[in-house]
Design a protein around this nucleic acid. Structure first.
Lengths: 205, 205
DNA sequence: CATCGTTGAATGAATGTTCAATCAGCCAGC
DNA sequence: GCTGGCTGATTGAACATTCATTCAACGATG
């Protein structure tokens, strides 16, 4: 019985993962506005009817998909390395707002921003992205607080500085996927570095 | 004939404006993903069939709507006042990323960001928002260049600093309409002010 | 009468969803 | 060990509804 239920659970997880993958593919191919059950079914290896065996309907599926995407993103951003605060900040910034993006990451970012684009008129989405932003802000704030405690950073308000960093990151992300150029990531990041050097990082002396 | 065509043109403009208004109302009510000809027609005083007398179809209408929205936005952001660069920069920032928003402006911003959310998978939208961002960046860059010329600002790279400001503005805007809190506008703006004071504005001495 | 803005009804395609019918694997009883 | 039912995964066909779009007809206005 133990094995059976384990296998069953694993199979169900596989199916769910396949549905999430199909939804992701359909989203990146057709965009959120043209995301239909039909198109998700087309990307899905099994039949589209099966989607209704695993989910109550389109809304239910998309809610789960949003969670799936946010979990992926947060797993990606997580960093628990033991470095000095300055290096940790650089690592985190590179993960959430890298200057150069491979095609896969670019597509993922685009999908994420399309989802975020639904938040203005969908309270459930808005709630999720609020949490999501808060989590990232707290990561920034922790690093900054550590830096101050260690004496490596100037004594800024960690939350305020973190919110500013988050805003810049979100600006970089939206610009990158909604512009034909690179979204000015290089310039923005360089100027952000100047800000960090002047405002946050304490000199050697 | 002169009067006739003028009136006719004016009437046509009125109708077009009414269609744009109806589209705007439908968008803010239902979101871009659920924006249909039917719903635009519902908000429209005339019948939905009339939409096809003025536009080739839904796509054509939406393309015009995007232009309509961007024109509104750019008219709003325009500022040709004769002030010193520092005051002009503050004015511009207040217009494009105000800390406090009345309901109407908030709804407009939300609609704009929903449109921007289509850009990742729609090349026409992407092109428009690229131009749009460049225009705003140039406004920032001009002010900064003027400030440097007048000796009021430090000698930074105007384009680079402008791109950074633009990124922050876009970050503020997306956060504000996709979060349940105020998007951290206050904190971000305060920290941006600190950056400007330290990096851009020259002291009295 | 001719023109043009305007409309309601109608079209076929696409939408989300349901459902009866298979299929495969597992457990109970013989 | 075999059989027969039970459960859950899976499917194709069907459903009503909504979609974007078309069009013939109407009415006002010149």
């Amino acid at each position: 019985m133990g094995d059976t239920s384990r296998f069953a659970a694993a199979a169900e997880d596989d199916t769910r993962a396949a549905i999430m993958r199909a939804t992701y593919d359909a989203l990146t191919s057709h965009g959120y506005a043209n995301l239909t059950i039909q198109r998700i079914g087309d990307e899905f290896e099994k039949s589209k009817s099966l989607l209704y065996h695993h989910y109550d309907g389109k809304d239910d599926l998309l809610v789960d998909f949003l969670r799936f995407m946010l979990e992926h993103w947060e797993a990606k951003a997580e960093c628990r390395e033991e470095q000095d605060p300055q290096a940790r900040l650089k690592t985190l910034l590179d993960r959430v707002a890298a200057v150069e993006l491979d095609e896969e990451t670019a597509a993922f970012t685009a999908a994420m921003e399309e989802l975020r684009g639904q938040a203005p008129h969908d309270a459930a989405y808005r709630e999720r992205f609020t949490e999501h932003d808060h989590a990232l802000r707290e990561q920034f704030a922790e690093i900054i607080a550590d830096g101050i405690e260690e004496g490596a950073f100037h004594e800024v308000d960690p939350t305020r500085a973190a919110e500013f960093l988050l805003t810049t990151v979100n600006g970089v992300r939206i610009q990158r996927v909604t512009r034909d150029d690179d979204g000015g990531v290089g310039a923005a990041r360089a100027e952000l570095q100047t800000y960090l050097d002047a405002r946050l990082y304490r000199g050697e002396a």
